[in-house]
Amino acid sequence: MERMQFKTDIRANVAKVYQTMLEKEGYKQWTSVFNPTSEYEGSWNKGEKIYFVGTSNEGKKEGMVGLIKEHIPKEYVSIEYIAMMDDGKEVNKGPRAHDWIGGYENYTFSGNNRQSTVTVDVDVNEKMIDWFQINYPKALEKLKEICESNR
């Protein structure tokens, strides 16, 4: 896996950006860049599982299963990937699961009452680097648009 970093500055306070990024409706909007049916199930609470899911082209429920390793509200969220979702079932064996299990995705929030910076550090398997380089900046741009249009 390779650690990649993506960052964006947003003209909105940290609380607004944090809430928009993690609450269900905002999450669906900014992650629609990855999959138009993207959503999450579960909790952002430390120690709990969270399921990042969407519907595949074949109509199957697929995605990633994470464990919230750390959550400091409005500052930092750390997710460790522990399994994949395949047709609605958790899978933690096989080559596809092996490519992601043990990887992390971390969100860091900083700023003040007028300007925020979101930094995402994510572990990516080598086959997906180009896809992430194209799509993660688009997703963060969408987050920026949502936050700045709802000020």
Rank of each mutant, 00 (worst) to 15 (best):
G66L: 02
D130P: 01
E105L: 01
E70Y: 07
W44R: 13
V77G: 06
A83T: 09
T37A: 01
N125M: 07
D99S: 14
D121W: 10
Y104I: 14
V118K: 13
R114W: 13
N112D: 15
E80H: 05
V118A: 06
N125S: 06
N125I: 03
E25T: 07
S43A: 05
N92P: 09
T119E: 15
T108R: 14
D87Q: 10
M85A: 02
N135D: 11
I72M: 06
L67K: 13
V124Y: 01
L143R: 03
G47F: 07
L67Y: 06
M21Q: 13
T31H: 06
G94A: 02
T119I: 15
E62S: 11
Q29F: 03
E80Y: 08
E39F: 01
R114G: 15
F34R: 10
T119P: 12
G111W: 07
E90S: 13
I68E: 07
G54Q: 04
K46V: 15
T37C: 10
N57S: 12
V53H: 01
V122L: 03
M64A: 15
G63F: 04
G42W: 10
P95Y: 08
V65S: 08
E23T: 06
G88C: 10
Y51P: 02
E90V: 14
E48K: 12
F52D: 02
S43H: 03
V118C: 14
T20G: 00
V53E: 12
N125V: 08
L140D: 11
M85P: 01
I129T: 12
S32D: 02
S78G: 11
Q133E: 14
S110G: 08
L140P: 12
W100N: 11
T31Y: 05
Q133C: 07
R96V: 14
K93E: 15
D86P: 00
T20D: 03
S32G: 12
F52T: 06
E48V: 05
L143T: 07
W30F: 06
T55Q: 08
G66P: 04
V14Q: 07
E90H: 08
F52Q: 10
D130W: 06
N57F: 12
L22K: 04
T20S: 03
Y51H: 05
V118E: 15
K61H: 00
E25H: 12
G111S: 05
V53Q: 15
V53R: 12
